[in-house]
Structure formats: structure tokens, C-alpha cells
Design a protein around this nucleic acid. Structure first.
Lengths: 336, 336
DNA sequence: TTGTACGCGTTATCAA
DNA sequence: TTGATAACGCGTACAA
């Protein structure tokens, strides 16, 4: 079934059929009705390949997800899909390994799929520096700040990671904690990890607290297992701390298990604070105290900025969305 | 950059260029070298749209994922991606809402993307009955049994859900439990839920135990929240039980929290057994006892069966993969 | 308002 | 082994 058949069946020409199908002007009401009638009946659909070959670009929006088992991104993606469902842009989702180069992948996908815009869920600054100039469609970096870049087609929507982790530490300090351990990401390669770490340091400094950057920090991957092992390493090294800050909820969960395996109770012996605000955290025993990112806002603003850029050539925005430090059961006040 | 340019640059014709690019015979070594040389230099890539328009089908495999926040499927997908990366088939992943019709969606995607085969992660028997005859490419239903269907292009790879949940209950009975509650899925609409429930009933019957199908069973969605609320409902209704079986780990986690909020300890007061074997379960306090599905085997067999069907016209298979009942910390022996 | 005809980049058929 | 050329299904300038 092609527009040719459709033309034959309705007595109109392919030109008219095409115009009707694309809602172009210059088609009579009568033609419109007659053609749409047959379309409904037959469930006809335009051939996307022919269409894109002709138009030289798709009508779709691409989502590049970095890291394949990331709860936060999964949630974000769900929200984004809901929002995009209200537009006419089909969504193409592409998953990458955590340490793959998302920008090069995007360049390739641009050639293949010719999307109208790209949403990056996670990303590495270095990759953007090196190769983003090869991309010329509107893009939004979600959960990462693009502040350092000057590209005319790159926006970003993120939580202020530095500020957020600083607040988290501040909150723990306010509860009387003075000795900390931090389980975070790779300080060399992950922008997010660097910012969250810097936030910690800033708070430590302001409160005049000691922190051994090598011994009290563990830079690992964002996973249950790495959170577990990092905490174990801290304990094995004999580090003493009353509070542990994990730069992601999944690591916090691994950390809690490691503490418990070492005979320590949470929060009685050690307070644990996570980062992200995954729904899961609210069902754990103890409920996880955490820095809650607003998935809703992150998704809404990203989609809004991207569609605006696509449709109206909107200028790139660098936005930050609010966060909340949630004190639940895995942290507690300790005596002076 | 098109094959025309490539032809011009190398002095050969588009025909020869196309043959070289597709590894067809009848192209001289010399031509091959000259052309590939320029391809390397320029990073040329064939236009996928033109290609598929001409060939009338893509070279890709489609994965239809039912339910957008399903940990098990997320894991499965990761494994599948790894396995497929070793083949030449690009993967197209499509997510659906839990109660959308995956078969109709697949029919639509077949028209749009013309894939070589489809992997269904989750699916509803009824939908397959009604509309699967509209699909004529090889398909594999993963985690669900297609035993009831006779389609010549539908395989399945799954855990024997009935048997598995029966074993889970058997294990709890062996630990001395006699009063049960079950938090499962919708018995009306989800095949998996029905099978897991039937497995429970079978074990109850064999051990001559009482179970009130209406009062001791909660049919809800597979989520933390629904697990929590279902358990709460059981407690509010005054049901007494020493063991709770949840048909999914996520529900078990919600259940444990609900028990604890009601002042009950796990496993001292109530033993809780989940289903799926998510990695997360091993890091919880208490570690979750569960029926562990083999994600590895599920993925391997599915991919293997699908590629065999695509490449060699292999006949449809209905396979079952082994499971393990893992006794960890959320279940315990109780006295007679 | 409608119809005709060309070209998008590729593959495949047929001659050479 | 190669080259010319006709499709594939669609959008659109141009003509009517």
C-alpha cells in the first residue's frame, strides 16, 4: 500500500494525496475527506524510509542514555517519554556503556537517523569539548552542566551538584558529625563526581574539618557492588567516621550493607546519606536519607527547552533545578 | 557524500561501489582496495533510508519492552545488547506502558522499521491470540511461555513460573510455615501472575494448607508502592501469617517496609520471599530470599533462537531455563 | 485546487 | 569484472 494506491482508490493524484497526508494547504475539503476516509479504513501509513530519504531528515528526537543500568535515568526516561508523547516527535532511545563516548555515538546516529534534536542523559565534558562541534542540531545535556561550553546549540538542565552535596554535608555537620567518609565516582573522569566531591570539600573546609583526600575518599563506579566494596575498603583501612556520604543512592545501599556486615548499625553507629532520591530509598529499612533530585523538573525543562529550540530556534539555556536534602532514617543526630 | 561521489572519486561506477560496500562477489581486489581506501579516509556511511527503501526491510532486530520501570527487564536488556553487539544486527528498543498492547505496537513497528525479528520482553497471551497473526517475522517471547500458541514464528524462553513459585512455597513450608499471604499480580490479566499464583495454590493443596483466595491474596502491580499497600491491606484486614510470598522482588521490598511500619520484624515475625533475583536483593538488610531467574540464560537462549530463526529459518522453540530458590536473610525456620 | 514529473541514495538487473 | 539504468515510496516545484 503506497500513496499511489491511495491515489488510484480515491481518484486523486499522488500529489494531492501527499498534500493531504502532510496537512499542507491547497487541498480541498472534499479531497481531504475522501482521502482520509480511505486512510482510516486501510490503516495506511507513510513509508518512513522514503519519507526521510526525500526530506533528508527525520521528525524524531534522539535520546542518548549513558549507562545502561541507571535507575535515575530510567525514571527520567519514563517522564521524558510521557512528555514527548504529547508532541508529534517520535523518540529514538539509544543506550551506551558508561564509559563509551556519547558524543561520537551521537554523531553517528545523526548520520543514520537525522533527528531534529538530541537529549543526552549523562555526558562527559571532555567528549563534548572534542567532538560536539560535529553536531549541528539542538541538544540538551540532562543532569550535567554545560556551563563550560560555548556551543550555540547546547543547552543543559541539571541539579547543582556541587551545591547539593555541600548542603548534604552541611546537614550532617548540623547533626553533630565531624568525621566523614565519602564514596563517590571517579574524580578523574566524571564531571558529576568531581562537582559532588568539590561540594563536600567546600563544606569540610568551611567547618574547619579534616579530610584526607586519599584515605577518606573512594572513587568507584555507581553501583551496589562498588558502594559495598568501597565501604569495605574504608573499614579495612581502619578509617573512623560517624557519617558516610555516597554520591549515589545505589552506592549508599551497598555501603549500608557493608557497614552492617562489619557489625556496624545504621544510623546508630554510622549515618549514611545518599544522592538522587530514588523511590526505592523510601522503602528501605532504614529509609535512606538522600539528596533528592527533581526528576519531574529535569524532564519537563529539558523537553521544553529542546522543543523550543527545534520549533522556534530558541537560544541555548543553562538551567539548574532545585533539590531537597531529605532526612530520613539512615542519618541521626549524635552528641557533641 | 553518497556512493555517487565515491564512484567519482575512485573512477569506478556506483554499481561497483555498491558491490564492494556490500561485500558482494564480482568485484576485483583492486577495486575493493581503492574504494575501501576512500571510505576509510572519508568515514563514509551508506544512507540507511535509501538502503531500506530499496531493500524493503531493515537489518535490525526489534526489542519490545513491556513496562518501563522493570529492573529485571533492564538487566535482561543489558545482556541482550551485549550479545547482539557480537552480531551485525542493530538493535531497536521500544518501551511500552505496562498495560499497552505490545502486539499491536509491534505490528506498527514492523511497518515502520521492517525489522528482521522481534524480542518481546514480557507479553500478554490475549494480545498474542488476537493480533499476532499479523506478524510474519521470527519472534521470541522472553520470560513468558508461548506454550499455548501455535504460531509458526513464535518461540519463547522463560522460567517455569508455576513450578518456581511452587518450589518457593515448598521451601517455606519446609521451614515450618503454615500460614501464608501472597502478594502477586493481577490474576485476571497477567499470565505470569496467574502461573505464579497457581504454583502457590498447588503447594498449599499438596500440603493440605488453608488459603483464602480472596483474603490472603492481593493482586496488584509490580512496584514498591503496590507491594507496600497490598501488605498493609492484608494487615489491616487482620490476616495472620508467618510467611509472605511476593511474586516480584520489588513487591517484596515494599512488603518488608510495610511489615516493619506495622511493628513486625523480618524474618523474626514474618518471613518474606521474593521472586526474580535482582542484584539489589543481595545488598538489602535483611538480604532478600528469592526465586532467582537466570538473566544470563534467558538472554542467551533468546538471542540464539532468534538469530537461528532469522538466518537458518530455525523452527520455533519453547524453552524453559532453570531457576534457584535462594534462602537468604528474609526467611527463617520457625518452630512447630 | 490539482496533476505531472523529477530526484532523494541505494540495490539489482542486464549488457557489455 | 564492470557500467548503465530502472526501480523503491515519497515530497515538491512547476505547469495546468
Amino acid at each position: 500500500m503506497t500513496i499511489k494506491d491511495l491515489a488510484a482508490r480515491t481518484g486523486y493524484s499522488v500529489g494531492t494525496v501527499s498534500r493531504v497526508l502532510n496537512n499542507h494547504p491547497h487541498a480541498s475539503k472534499k479531497a481531504r475527506q475522501a482521502i482520509m476516509q480511505v486512510v482510516e479504513e486501510s490503516g495506511f501509513q507513510l513509508n518512513e524510509n522514503a519519507r526521510q530519504l526525500k526530506q533528508q531528515h527525520a521528525t524524531s528526537v534522539l535520546v542518548v542514555v549513558k549507562g545502561t543500568s541507571n535507575e535515575l535515568f530510567a525514571e527520567l526516561l519514563t517522564k521524558i517519554q510521557q512528555l514527548m508523547a504529547q508532541t508529534s516527535y517520535p523518540l529514538i532511545v539509544d543506550y551506551l556503556d558508561e564509559d563509551a563516548n556519547e558524543v561520537l555515538r551521537a554523531v553517528q546516529l545523526c548520520r543514520e537517523k537525522k533527528p531534529l534534536g538530541i537529549l543526552f542523559l549523562g555526558g562527559n565534558s571532555e567528549n563534548f569539548c572534542n567532538d560536539f562541534d560535529k553536531i549541528d542540531i539542538p541538544c540538551v545535556l540532562v543532569t550535567n552542566d554545560a556551563g563550560g561550553h560555548v556551543f550555540a546549540n547546547l543547552s543543559s538542565v541539571s541539579t547543582d551538584d556541587r551545591q547539593a552535596s555541600r548542603c548534604a554535608i552541611d546537614a550532617l555537620v548540623a547533626m553533630g558529625h565531624r568525621k566523614f567518609a565519602v564514596v563517590g565516582g571517579d574524580r578523574e573522569r566524571s564531571d558529576t563526581s568531581i562537582l559532588r566531591y568539590e561540594g563536600c570539600l567546600q563544606s569540610f573546609r568551611e567547618h574547619g574539618m579534616e579530610f584526607d583526600e586519599d584515605l577518606d575518599y573512594q572513587g568507584v563506579r555507581y553501583s551496589y557492588q562498588d558502594g559495598y566494596q568501597a565501604t569495605r575498603a574504608l573499614l579495612d583501612a581502619g578509617r573512623k567516621f560517624t557519617a558516610l556520604f555516597a554520591a549515589a543512592d545505589v552506592m549508599a545501599i551497598g555501603a549500608i550493607r557493608a557497614l552492617r556486615d562489619a557489625g556496624l548499625r545504621v544510623p546508630e553507629d554510622v549515618s549514611v546519606m545518599g544522592f538522587d532520591g530514588l523511590p526505592l530509598g523510601g522503602y528501605l529499612v532504614p529509609q535512606l536519607s538522600t539528596v533528592c533530585q527533581s526528576v519531574q523538573l529535569l524532564a519537563e525543562r529539558s523537553v521544553s527547552i529542546l522543543t523550543d529550540a527545534i520549533e522556534n530556534g530558541g537560544k541555548p539555556q543553562k538551567e539548574t533545578v532545585p533539590f531537597v536534602v531529605m532526612q530520613r532514617e539512615s542519618t541521626r543526630h549524635i552528641g557533641e
